[in-house]
């Protein structure tokens, strides 16, 4: 069991690094969406500061969704997914590894980049750790929930818009808690409650989402 997890991780890692462009695209998208807002509403720091939590979180939501659209598609098209489904190893475990690998590349990179954008949106330096913490706890939930949608739309041509329609409503609690944490920190209030709730959601989705993803993929390959 441990061996297959490790081998799968290596495979995903190799596949990702053989096409480095695909790794970068969601991050560039994240950066562009955030940069659009000051251009749209003006560079006044007070306004940017109030908007910053929302802007960064919405950008993270959209970037995650964009990057997840193709998560299972190439494996579906070349028949790899059939072999996964047929394997004696638990499918839920394998998809969990795949999604966590995706998060390591996409979600973690956003966590690392976020302080930079926080500064650009006039957030005070004292808030930046909370920004990172909220993203660190929230983005795995985004990846896992989004992967459920990606699994359900795996065989569909042009599933991108449909994926957004299915999954964005489910992202709302993460959005509320994530931005709430940053807002609270901006007002000098404690953020432990938010962090605990986000952690709860992360644990919940870690344990339940893989089952739904596996079910979705089984349905997809039986098409």
């Amino acid at each position: 069991m441990r061996r297959i997890v490790w081998l799968l991780f290596c495979r995903e890692w190799r596949l990702a690094w053989r096409r480095p462009g695909d790794l970068l695209n969601p991050l560039v998208f994240f950066a562009i969406v955030i940069s659009l807002f000051p251009l749209a509403v003006g560079p006044e720091p007070g306004m940017l500061r109030t908007m910053a939590p929302g802007v960064i979180w919405v950008a993270a939501l959209l970037a995650t969704l964009l990057s997840l659209d193709g998560l299972f598609r190439s494996d579906y098209e070349d028949g790899s997914l059939e072999q996964w489904v047929l394997s004696p190893h638990p499918l839920a475990l394998m998809v969990l590894v795949k999604v966590l690998h995706h998060w390591l590349i996409c979600g973690l990179a956003m966590v690392v980049l976020a302080p930079l954008f926080g500064l650009m949106l006039a957030l005070p330096a004292s808030v930046l750790p909370v920004l990172c913490l909220s993203l660190l706890l929230g983005t795995p939930v985004l990846s896992l929930l989004g992967a459920v949608g990606a699994a359900l739309t795996v065989g569909l041509k042009g599933g991108g818009v449909l994926l957004a329609l299915l999954i964005l409503p489910l992202y709302i609690p993460v959005l509320i808690l994530g931005t709430g944490a940053i807002d609270a920190s901006l007002q000098g209030m404690p953020v432990t409650g938010y962090a605990l709730w986000l952690g709860c959601l992360a644990v919940l989705s870690l344990s339940l989402a893989p089952i739904a993803i596996a079910a979705g993929l089984r349905i997809g390959v039986s098409e």
Binding site: R11, R14, L15, R18, R19, E77, D78, G79, S80
Partner: peptide, 8 residues
């Protein structure tokens, strides 16, 4: 589909 990944 042969389940062969093009990039591997």
């Amino acid at each position: 589909a042969p389940a062969v990944k093009a990039n591997l």
